[in-house]
């Protein structure tokens, strides 16, 4: 990391200039993202507190062990695909911003389209995962009877294993901690909603690029601001990935 070299004789406080060498809009985008980081942080820490206060917590490698066409036994496979999709779409966003610096409209259009595609692919993966959890049927022992249970905000089947009890080839468990589904769907949902709004913003930026608005304006700073938001979404995923899938 290197701070910019500041030209000699720059007078920051004489007015007419940004003391941070940033436009108002870009600076405020940063502060918005900082406040959003606190929102996500608060959610994740609430999850952490609840998890630390529980004697038993579901093992993510056990909960998230499926992918399309793979029924169980494959932990981390699907979520690593999702993670790489988001990293790649972040890279194409960087390239779009760079093309914007070069005032190359065709380049911006191309990379914005790739970024939008990455965002949609990620959302598709998340939709699959939610569907898989919400429609799953896992055998759970409740009041001495075996019931089929899906993962919802009210119940989850990821409790402790009942030793030696099998049902249709599946290990029978007790019901898991109630908070698990709420935190998982709440936090990944909040992140997914950020991805969705990021995709909408990127589509608007793509249309505005197509219409030549930024060429008329003489700069592509709006692409930079949309880019900041998009990278932030990727950044949050790093921590959602860490807290829900890895540890």
């Amino acid at each position: 990391m290197s701070s910019a070299a500041i030209p000699a004789g720059t007078k920051w406080w004489s007015g007419g200039k940004s003391p941070f060498n940033l436009s108002y809009g870009k600076m405020m985008m940063w502060y918005f993202l900082m406040s959003d980081a606190f929102t996500f942080g608060a959610f994740l820490i609430a999850y952490g507190t609840t998890r630390f206060s529980a004697n038993y917590w579901p093992d993510p490698n056990h909960v998230f062990d499926s992918a399309p066409f793979i029924h169980g036994g494959a932990p981390l496979v699907f979520v690593s695909i999702m993670t790489f999709i988001l990293i790649v779409s972040s890279v194409t966003m960087v390239l779009a911003v760079h093309e914007g610096h070069n005032m190359n409209r065709k380049g911006v259009e191309k990379y914005m389209l790739w970024t939008i595609l990455g965002g949609l692919a990620f959302l598709g993966c998340q939709a699959w995962e939610w569907t898989h959890l919400l429609t799953g049927d896992n055998p759970v022992l409740v009041n001495g009877e075996i019931v089929e249970m899906a993962t919802t905000v009210k119940v989850n089947p990821w409790g402790e294993v009942v030793p030696g009890m099998m049902h249709n080839g599946h290990q029978v468990t007790t019901p898991g901690p109630v908070a698990f589904g709420g935190f998982f769907f709440g936090i990944t949902g909040f992140h997914g909603f950020h991805v969705l709004s990021g995709v909408v913003i990127n589509i608007i930026m793509y249309i505005k690029t197509r219409l030549g608005h930024f060429d008329q304006r003489g700069h592509y700073e709006m692409i930079e601001k949309a880019g900041l938001y998009w990278h932030f979404v990727d950044l949050v995923w790093v921590f959602v990935f860490l807290c829900f899938y890895l540890i």
């Binding site: 910019a4 500041i6 030209p7 720059t10 007419g16 200039k17 940004s18 060498n21 940033l22 436009s23 108002y24 914007g100 610096h101 070069n102 005032m103 190359n104 003489g218 700069h219 592509y220 700073e221």
Partner: peptide, 16 residues
């Protein structure tokens, strides 16, 4: 291919 001018008059120099 020219690099852009500052996006706003508030900006003193462009880092590129």
């Amino acid at each position: 291919m020219s690099h852009s001018s500052p996006a706003s008059s508030e900006i003193s120099f462009v880092q590129h």
